[in-house]
Amino acid sequence: MDDLDLIRERAETVGFASPEHLTPARERLLAAARGERRRRPGRLFWAAGASIGLAAAITGVVALAPAEQVGIGAGVAHADPVKVLTEAASAALKEPAKPPRPDQFLYVRTEEPEHHVREVWFSVDGTRDSLIGGFKEGGCRNGKAPMYGTNDPRKEGMLEDCAPRSVYRTDLPTTADAMLAYLEAQAGDRKGDVNSMGKDVYHLAYEQVLPPASYAALFEAAARVPGLTALDHVTDAAGRPGVGITWPVSPGSSPKATPVVLVFDAKTYQFLGTPETAVTVKTFVDEVGQRP
């Protein structure tokens, strides 16, 4: 295989960048060429290493554009899933611990494609009535909660047995080992289903709040799960760019099963959501209907 064959093979593998991306890449290419050339009396030639260096420079030119623009698919990524999740854990630990008051509400605003917005107000201690996407949910007081939005009007407001659930999860582990064991225990008969574990991680980071140490443990535990991949140039449902961590679908799953993709900010490593649902606001407020 000669130099041109090698270059041609590299170009066919990764595709071509758009013209606006070529200028800086061309400068790198020329610099690589100047650095690799050697002179012999009477003629200019390329050393064997120069072909490899030039091919690498060519790769830099053709792979400069985002994956979705050069036609090689979002699966070609430079980010490492372990590094991304480890950095997400470190970022979580830097967040100040601000426990809410029991009488407050967790307000979460999420956005889905085409700007569909969902808002929820969850009672922090679970004893007050919550509002979830326009539907009222009864708070659990003295082991009883009123029923709302039932199909049978006669049952509206009737009491049913309950146990209060807090959306501020102080009951979760604060170490990676313990969190991984917790996630595996939650799997039950789904044990070994990596995609299912990804959904559990997502739900903990979605419309609940964890203390910083538990958030860090969650992402550190996720980093230990085998088979994860990182996707560059991913956007969440609100259109915010980031890096995606994909949880593979287990063998034997339904053909309709799709992998869970968690999106993190590529600079701050803050959890943003997924390509289907983006968390745009998450904070505590004093009453239902209040917005920050």
Rank of each mutant, 00 (worst) to 15 (best):
T235V: 10
L231E: 11
D129I: 06
S166W: 14
G73M: 13
V108E: 04
T23E: 14
E276N: 14
I132W: 04
Q104S: 12
L210D: 01
K98Y: 00
S18K: 06
R26C: 06
L218K: 05
Q290S: 11
E12G: 07
L64E: 15
A91H: 06
P146R: 08
T277D: 13
P292F: 01
F219Y: 14
A79S: 06
I72L: 10
T283E: 13
L30C: 03
I245V: 11
L131F: 02
L106A: 06
P66I: 09
L180A: 08
I245P: 04
K282F: 03
L172P: 08
A31N: 12
L44T: 13
K267S: 12
D3Q: 08
D200C: 01
D161C: 03
S123Y: 10
V194D: 03
L159P: 03
V62R: 07
T150E: 02
L218V: 07
R141I: 13
D3L: 15
C140I: 07
T170K: 13
L272H: 05
G289M: 03
L93V: 09
L180F: 13
Q186L: 14
W121M: 01
P226R: 02
T150F: 05
L6R: 15
L93W: 12
T86P: 05
A11W: 04
Y215N: 10
F284L: 01
Y202F: 15
T258L: 09
T127A: 10
T283R: 12
H21M: 08
L159H: 03
N151R: 11
H233A: 13
F122E: 14
A65E: 12
F219C: 02
T127D: 06
D236I: 05
Y168G: 01
A163F: 11
